[in-house]
Amino acid sequence: MTDLDRTIEYLSDDDHNELIINIENEPQIQAPSYIDRNVISIVETAERRKVLNFRLYCARVGFAVAVAILFVCIVPLVSNLKSDILSNGYFAEESLDSKEDVLALKPVKTKQEVMKEVNDPGYFEKTEISIRSHIDDLLK
């Protein structure tokens, strides 16, 4: 409570009763008649807004539930389709060459052929020339 609130305090029960008695003893004052109309109109507007908000809330919840049900229905279908693809082995059958086929296409030298080539006296010169030509190609 602030200092200001302490200076204007709520009425005690005694003060309150005294206030009512005083007012009832004074000549009666007519309240404006439009107060009734205003109050009823404010209350009705608030009620209408409350009903509208509730309907909006129901629509949102209904939409969320519908989306959830849709997910529940769709997700198993999608996962079934995925497992079908994997189990049917589409990728395995799809034009993948065997190891033997791949190796058969490349000429593979035997150990003896390689040793013979290395023991050849011009081998190092030939190798050097081929490396240099590779480097030149790369630099170009």
Binding site: L19, I20, I29, A31, P32, V39, I40, E47
Partner: peptide
């Protein structure tokens, strides 16, 4: 809701002048 509204109308017709006087005072 209708009962509450009727009650409100009753309260206003009975105590509107008194409440207004309290506020005015």
């Amino acid at each position: 809701e209708i009962d509450s509204k009727e009650k409100l109308i009753d309260l206003m017709s009975l105590y509107k002048n008194l409440v207004f006087s309290v506020c005015l005072k």
